[in-house]
Each structure stands twice: as structure tokens, then as C-alpha cells.
Computed example of a mutant assay.
Amino acid sequence: MVDPTSDLGEDIDEADAPTCANCGDPIVQSPTHRVVTWVEDGRVQHRHFCSDDCRDAFAE
């Protein structure tokens, strides 16, 4: 897994890239990439989304 704070557009292979939590597409060099972060039980959690539309459509 790639560090979510890294520059994801730099030298990231598609196999190592994060995937969108909604559609499952790998996120490589995407200017619309969004990361949602929250704290749960004292641990930082996060989800990657390829776009605002996928973030808005995501249902837990």
C-alpha cells in the first residue's frame, strides 16, 4: 500500500496504487483523487476515491 500522504502521481505502478473504495479502479496520476480520513477507536482510517462522484456515491 502506498502512503496516502505521498505524491501519488510520481512513479507509482498501477499494481501498487490505491483503488477507489466505490468503483475499484486504481488511482494513478488522477487530479480528481480524493481521500476521506477519520479517527475510529483511536486509529486513523482512510478511504481513497477516484472522484467526487464516487465519493458521493459510496455507501457503507
Rank of each mutant, 00 (worst) to 15 (best):
H33R: 14
E40T: 11
V35G: 00
A21K: 07
C20A: 08
Q45D: 15
T37G: 04
V44M: 12
D13L: 07
C23G: 06
V36T: 11
E14P: 02
F58W: 15
E14R: 14
E14A: 03
V39M: 11
R55A: 15
S51A: 13
I12V: 15
G42K: 09
D53L: 07
R55Q: 15
W38P: 02
D53K: 13
L8I: 03
N22S: 05
D52E: 14
Q45H: 14
C23Y: 09
V44F: 12
V28Q: 02
D3A: 04
P26H: 06
H46C: 14
D13G: 15
D41E: 14
D11Y: 13
A17H: 06
Q45C: 13
Q45P: 13
G24A: 03
D3Y: 04
V39Y: 10
C20G: 06
A15Y: 03
W38N: 00
I12P: 00
E60C: 11
V35S: 00
R43A: 11
D3P: 04
D41H: 14
A17Q: 01
E14M: 02
C54M: 09
D56Y: 03
P31Y: 09
F49E: 08
D16N: 06
P18C: 07
N22K: 10
A15K: 08
V44P: 05
C54E: 06
L8W: 07
T19D: 09
D11A: 07
V35A: 02
G42S: 14
D56W: 01
R43K: 12
I27Y: 01
P18A: 08
E60S: 15
D25K: 11
W38K: 02
D52F: 06
P26W: 00
I12A: 05
A15H: 03
P31R: 10
D16R: 07
T19Q: 07
A15R: 08
T5G: 03
H33T: 02
F58T: 03
C50M: 07
N22V: 08
H48Y: 05
D25G: 05
W38Y: 09
I12W: 03
N22R: 09
F49K: 06
G42T: 10
V36Y: 02
V35K: 01
I12K: 01
D3G: 08
A21S: 15
C50N: 02
P4R: 00
T32W: 08
A21F: 07
A59G: 15
H48F: 00
T32D: 12
R34P: 01
V44G: 09
A15D: 06
R47C: 00
V28D: 02
M1P: 04
Q45R: 15
P18M: 05
C50K: 11
F58S: 08
S51P: 04
L8C: 09
R43G: 07
P26N: 04
N22M: 09
D52Q: 06
D56P: 05
I12R: 01
N22D: 13
T37Y: 06
D13P: 10
V44A: 10
V35P: 00
P4V: 00
H46W: 14
V44I: 10
T5P: 04
R47Q: 06
D13E: 12
D16G: 08
E60Q: 14
D53Q: 07
T37H: 01
D7V: 11
Q45W: 11
A57Q: 15
T37I: 05
D41L: 13
S30L: 08
T5N: 12
T19I: 10
P18T: 11
G24N: 02
V28A: 01
Q29F: 08
V28P: 00
D56M: 09
V35C: 01
